[in-house]
């Protein structure tokens, strides 16, 4: 690896000051499962690496009955799915956190890093979008918030400015009649990158859908919100014809490319299949006799 300076600040302010000094040549280190690989490959050559893991705000995972979940940017995936209170309220987020990499990766990698890395195939991002997550960003003058669906602007590029850092994600508390799911398609069961990922959150009344959110991953330059499919579902019973049509609308929202992992046509088809399955999985989680995942 190239030479760089290493800093382990203990407060957001200290980190902001380091960013003010080093600007675009600084990078935040959370789990390192993207950054260290990129530095070793030479695709990222920061002169200053700021280890975020000693900043308590970025390591905070807290559930508040009024404001919902705060998920600090440096909280590793393992802490999300091992937290039963979080797992029961945000099953879609947990689906994604459990799918990322191997045990070795999930013990280090953070959802904040997954978001800030800006990959269109990031597993946690469709789940965050479906759950209505908002990114909290600290800068030199003030803190600002950006809905997660607007955070990534192009592959590898985000709204973060050189002097800003992602503090974490605020995720509203889902009502009792709501649940969520994230499904992805990969050729292998573990250790693979999504060919398609679909995150959904649904509010139900009996078998009827009151409100839905659907977000798609790996089928466009950034994650895509399938608005028409979600709007269509409001007020509908989730019967086979409705699910099929919602899947079709979601597939129409996708803008995939052909690459080594799948053709555009295949990806569109998988979007419709996964949308239907994710909606069914979410509805199943809301049934009274449902246990576990």
């Amino acid at each position: 690896m190239h030479e760089f300076s290493y800093h382990a600040p203990t407060s957001v302010n200290e980190a902001i000051n380091l960013l003010a000094t080093h600007g675009a040549k600084a990078r935040l280190l959370c789990g390192g499962t993207d950054l260290i690989i990129q530095m070793r490959a030479g695709t990222q050559q920061p002169s200053c690496v700021i280890d975020a893991k000693r900043i308590s705000d970025l390591r905070r995972l807290s559930l508040d009955p009024a404001t919902g979940l705060f998920l600090g940017a440096a909280v590793p995936c393992v802490e999300i799915y091992q937290n039963e209170a979080v797992a029961s309220r945000y099953p879609g987020l947990v689906d994604a956190a459990k799918l990322i990499g191997s045990v070795q990766i999930r013990d280090r990698a953070s959802v904040g890093g997954n978001l800030a890395n800006g990959s269109p195939a990031a597993d946690s991002v469709p789940a965050l979008i479906a759950l209505g997550a908002v990114a909290r960003i600290a800068g030199p003058d003030r803190e600002r918030t950006v809905p997660v669906e607007k955070f990534v602007v192009a592959p590898g590029r985000t709204v973060l400015k050189a002097d800003e850092l992602l503090v974490g994600m605020q995720i509203p508390l889902p009502p009792a009649n709501a649940s969520s799911a994230y499904l992805r398609f990969t050729p292998r069961n573990e250790m693979d990158i999504a060919v398609v990922g679909v995150g959904v959150a649904v509010k139900m009344s009996g078998e009827g859908c009151l409100e839905a959110q659907i977000a798609l991953g790996a089928v466009g330059p950034t994650q895509i919100v399938a608005k028409e499919a979600a709007t269509y579902l409001a007020g509908k019973r989730l019967d086979e014809a409705t699910l099929e049509h919602a899947g079709r609308l979601a597939a129409q929202a996708a803008t995939p490319i052909d690459d080594t992992r799948g053709t555009a046509e295949f990806r569109r088809h998988i979007v419709s299949v996964l949308t239907r399955r994710a909606l069914l999985a979410t509805a199943a989680r809301l049934r009274p006799n449902h246990s576990g995942n």
Binding site: Y6, A8, L29, G31, G32, T33, I36, I37, V49, D51, K53, Q104, I105, D107, R108
Partner: peptide, 10 residues
Amino acid sequence: VCSCLVLGLE
């Protein structure tokens, strides 16, 4: 963890 993805200073 993978020790190749951890900095010694960490």
